[in-house]
């Protein structure tokens, strides 16, 4: 099914309706706990470098996926970056049109040797260009809860 296809259920045939009655509470884990706490408390962005092979991760992690070494230290990066790619979303998850299209960017984060991060770009769709410098816009400290929306999005500079 294409994502843009109208959502209709096959109710001409006889069918049985159901749901899976669960909800989820995800722990952030050891790596992301540090990352989002640093944003929440200090407005800082943490990356980590593998002490063995030198691979850089953003957000910071507790292990290197390439050589499996433990990573205990983090370092600060400014949180700025460049637009590596972007898309403009006109449809919502259920296929209905959005009032305002969303601009979703893949941002190459400065000081991380090419690590990329997904978030919204606060710009008119026709004003976004690949390669533009962007900077993060944070919520006011009192409103930050420790999560991806402590970053409101990225703004082109």
């Amino acid at each position: 099914m294409g994502l843009s296809e109208r959502i209709e259920r096959n109710v001409d045939l006889s069918y049985f309706e159901g749901k899976i009655p669960v909800n989820y509470v995800y722990t952030y884990g050891l790596g992301l706990e540090k990352f989002f706490n640093a944003i929440k408390e200090k407005g800082e962005f943490l990356a980590s470098r593998c002490p063995e092979c030198g691979a850089v991760y953003f957000p910071c992690r507790i292990f290197c996926e390439r050589c499996f070494s433990e990573i205990t230290r983090t370092f600060k990066v400014p949180g700025t970056g460049t637009v590596y790619s972007y898309t403009v979303c006109h449809l919502d998850m259920d296929g209905s049109p959005k009032k305002e299209p969303d601009v979703v960017g893949l941002i190459e984060v400065d000081g991380t040797e090419g690590a990329k991060f997904v978030h919204f770009i606060d710009a008119k769709p026709d004003k976004v260009t690949i390669g533009r410098k962007v900077k993060p816009v944070l919520k006011a400290k009192k409103d930050r809860e420790g999560g991806i929306f402590d970053i409101k999005g990225f703004r082109q500079v």
């Binding site: 045939l13 309706e17 989820y24 722990t27």
Partner: peptide, 28 residues
């Protein structure tokens, strides 16, 4: 690292709650 339910309820560690919105119509 063992957590207690209260560690989550009191926000001692960061968590994210989410409810998937999935409905099914299984053909007979």
């Amino acid at each position: 690292t063992q957590l207690k339910q209260s560690d989550i309820d009191r926000g001692k560690v960061l968590t994210l709650a989410q409810t998937p919105d999935l409905e099914y119509a299984w053909d007979d």
